[in-house]
Design a protein around this nucleic acid. Sequence first.
DNA 1: ACTATGTCCTGCGAGC
DNA 2: TGCTCGCAGGACATAG
Length: 284
Amino acid sequence: MPELPEVETIARGLAKRVIGDVIESVWLGSKPEPLKSPAKEIAKVLEGSRIADVQRVGKHIVFDLDRVVRTPPSAKKKSSAKGDHPEKAQWVVHLGMTGRMLVNDPTDELAKHTHLVATLKSGRELRFVDPRRLGRLSVAYGFEPGGKEPLDVSLQDFIPLFRGRKTPIKSALLNQKLLRGVGNIYADESLFRTGVRPTRKAASLKKDDLARLHPAIQEVLREAIKLGGSTVSDYVDSDGEEGFFQLQHRVYGREGELCLVCRTPIKRVVIAGRSSHYCPKCQK
DNA sequence: ACTATGTCCTGCGAGC
DNA sequence: TGCTCGCAGGACATAG
């Protein structure tokens, strides 16, 4: 579901409401799929931790946690024991297609497919809900997923990402090891604004194509963030609010409808198993 | 090292 | 009304 603008919107909303709060207890559901780290470790690291920051990294939500690791009294006299010491840890959340991270009042009804509830000192709850269970929860100590941040990458660093790649440019844009955060909607929208067909081999794009693609991606992502992301079927932010960028989509989800520039019907093809939309006249 | 394909899940709407 | 089918914002494992 969520791509960079949606995750950014969620992370900003969460930051406003939970920074400084302390996770008092964690409830984990019985379904193991959403857990990338062992359940015991997630519960252990989260419980008692203070949320120092919430940030988006690619499509991940990263909670920076400050926690005090307590050494059991029995171990204190041993020479190897360090005693109580602060530790930096991160709670990393990937929402997959249908994941939601919500701030709730404890009296709010528990949604179906709730896999985690973190009770906060303030009395509120952080809830992770994910019907398809393609999302993932983990803890890390220095999270670094690789790939370049699309909003930060310079043109100089952007151009070589596609050198020698025979895969369609659409697939390359979805490859999180190259750029982290671009997904199906924003790949299609960026390529439309660039005038490049999604089926073109990545390596076939000339320097001037890439010099247009680079700002097009950033423009689309920035505009989408401004509008709170795209709600196609069920995306909502941490307050349960929908986004509005879907009203600005020029090709995504518009198969058979007329191109807003040239009135040619928008085409849909499947690339790497994903629906891809383009204008056959505007995109070469 | 790169690339194409299948798989993980549930829910929804279209079509019959 | 009820059924089946295809499709969905993502990422990985696997095989070539």
